[in-house]
Every structure is written in C-alpha cells, then in structure tokens.
Design a protein around this nucleic acid. Structure first.
Lengths: 186, 186
DNA sequence: TCGTTACAAAACATTGTGTTAGATATTATT
DNA sequence: AATAATATCTAACACAATGTTTTGTAACGA
C-alpha cells in the first residue's frame, strides 16, 4: 500500500479519535477532522465514503483482534471450559484491553460510547457468549437461553464500562472475579 | 395554557415519535417533523430550541411517572422490602410499562435507543437501585457496592430490551422472575 | 369587542455534506 | 534518471438542513 495512503489514513484516525475524546460523535464535522488531520477535503472523501463509514472502519480495526486474540491464546491449551479456565480467559481479555488497546478504552468511555458498544457487543457475542452460556447451562437456571446469553453479554459490557470509569484501578484478575461473581459463577 | 400551544405541542410530539419508530434519531430532520406535524417552521422553533431539546422533553414527559408511580403504589403498604415484595414491585413496573406507556416501549426499541436509555437509566437508578442493592447486601456478595448497583441497573435495562424484542410475549410476573433469577435473588 | 398571542408563509444567512476540476507532489516502475 | 501512475491539495461547486426574521392572519382570553 502506498505510504501516502497509510499516512493520511493514520492522520484521519488519529484526528477522529482525538475529537471523539472531546465531543459527541454526532457533533463532530468532517471539516474538523480534516483540519486536525491537516488534509484536503477531497482526500478525506477519497478514503471514506461518509463519516459513518469512518466510524465503522475505526471500530472494526480496533476491536478486530481483542477478543479473538484472547481466545486463541487461551483455548490453545484446553478446549473444554472449566470455571477456572473461564476466569483466566476473562482476566486475559481484560489484560489485553488494558495493555495493548488504550485507544479502545478511551473511545468506549467517550460521549458516543453507545455507538461503539454496538460493535463491541457484536464481537463479544460472537466470541464469548456461547462459551459462557455453556457454563451457565450446567447450572440449569430457569430462564430462557437467549435471555441468559444477552445477560452475560450486557454484564460484560457493563463491567468494562465500570472499570474504565474507575480509571482501571482494579486488577484484571479481580475484575474477572467481580464479573463471574455477579453472574453467579464463582 | 393556550389551546393552540397544546395542540401544536401534541402534534410535534406525535410526529416526532412516529418518525422515531421508523428511522434513527440522527437521520430525522426538522423539516420532516414539521411536515408530518403540519405546522410552520417558525412555530417549531417557537416551541423547541433545537431537535435535541425536543428529544429531551419527550423523554422527560414519558419517563417521568413510570417508576415513581410504581414505587408509590407499592411502597404505600410496606416500606421494608422483602424478596417477594421486590418481585411484586418489579412485576408492577413491567405492567405499568406495558399497559400505560406503549410509546415508551416503542421508542426504547427504536434505532436511537441508546439516546433514550440514558434518560431511562437515570430514572431507574434514582428510584430502584437503592432498594435492590439493599436486598443484595444482605447476601454479602464480595463485589464493590457501586459495581453491584450498576449491575442491577444494567440488568434491568437489558431485561426490558429483551422483553420488547420478544414482543412482550412474556408476562410481567415471569419477566420479574427472570430478572431476579439472573440477579441471584430468587 | 379589543388587545394579546400563536401561527403560517416565505425569504434569508449560515453551516455542513459530498462532488468535481485542474494543478502539484510523491510513489513505483523501467 | 526518466516516466507513468496516483495520491494529494486548493478551490469552487451544488445541495440539504439549520435556525432566524419578517409580515400578515387567525385564534384566544378578558
């Protein structure tokens, strides 16, 4: 890929996420982005069809490897998920979020978090929910399966958001404890 | 208040929520609202400073009495909250949501739900969280109190959203069961 | 009935979106 | 090093939506 393309793409992403940490997504204009990224107007539209597409691509690139990396790393050893395995898996994901992806956390905490959560939720559901719901089913709680899956999902997101709001002062292991505790698996 | 004012205010609210059930909040234009409400442009701006203010006022008027009404009705009898009381209280709120406020449910389910959930969440937190967290503390789960409160909160919202998505086919009592079950109080 | 007030219609300035044209600079190719 | 390809920049453009203003009219309350 052309170096120029990569440079401007970088610049756009940087400017965009910088603006996102300051103001709501809906209030950000393309004009502001290109000013901060220091690129021409037509250049922006050569890269991204609309502002919505930019958001989508940013989320995709950010979230892409968080969950899958964590799972790959953990499941290499053991495919059957015990309680302690689940704890390690969750904790590992929290580590991953904290160390390698500060950008994700900053963006999840911005005013437009709702917009990002949809993407975040999708990835989480895809990778984790099946495994966790399997753990639950062993306990045979008398609620519908899809209700349970969404609960596991929503609780994970709420856990991450709480963590960010507490400025990541809780350790990944402890946070994984909290998560599994309120879910009743612990 | 002038009858004319009330009439146009009604018309604006009706048109707005009708549009919200069709498309995302951000995509709705003032032009569409005034066309559907059949009022003049200047009239709209005489009533609402911006589209955001309209949204805010709509949420306020819709959510205002849902939680407080439910609480008033229930707590008249008994201020100490036992497990069965909690179940009745939750179920009563679900009834309230279903019967008296179809508008709320339709709006919570629209594409812009994230926007409304902030208001919804506020009201719920204000009225319910203290009572429910009290129930939890008796069980002395080893997680921080504010984490627990937010969990109770987020789970309620997720429960309502799941209910809507299932087209309200679950009875309020059963739904209250589900809610308390996944919270571990049941 | 009379003063007040809400409304409609239309024009208006302003801002943001997305497109297009030609000129310039950077890149990969030979 | 010369060349072809292409990413970029400046600038102007049409378009849509926002929010304001003006003027005339109709509905309201007293």
């Amino acid at each position: 890929m052309d170096r120029r393309q990569m440079k401007t793409r970088e610049a756009i992403f940087d400017a965009f996420s910088a603006l996102l940490s300051q103001k709501n997504y809906n209030k950000i204009t393309v004009g502001e982005i290109i000013d901060l990224a220091n690129i021409g107007r037509s250049t922006f539209y050569a890269h991204f069809e609309t502002k919505d597409h930019l958001l989508q691509e940013l989320c995709r690139t950010l979230f892409e490897h968080v969950f899958s990396d964590a799972l790959d790393h953990e499941l290499t050893h053991d495919f059957s998920l015990s309680n302690s395995n689940a704890h390690d898996l969750i904790a590992h994901t929290f580590y991953h979020l904290r160390e390698d992806h500060q950008n994700i956390l900053r963006i999840l905490n911005c005013e437009s978090s709702g917009t990002f959560l949809n993407f975040f939720k999708e990835d989480f559901t895809q990778h984790f929910s099946p495994l966790l719901s399997q753990l639950f089913l062993e306990k045979t709680i008398a609620v519908p399966k899809d209700f349970l899956m969404e609960h596991v999902n929503a609780t994970f997101i709420h856990t991450v958001l709480w963590w960010i709001r507490e400025d990541l002062k809780t350790s990944p292991e402890t946070l994984a404890d909290y998560y599994l505790k309120v879910l009743g698996i612990a």
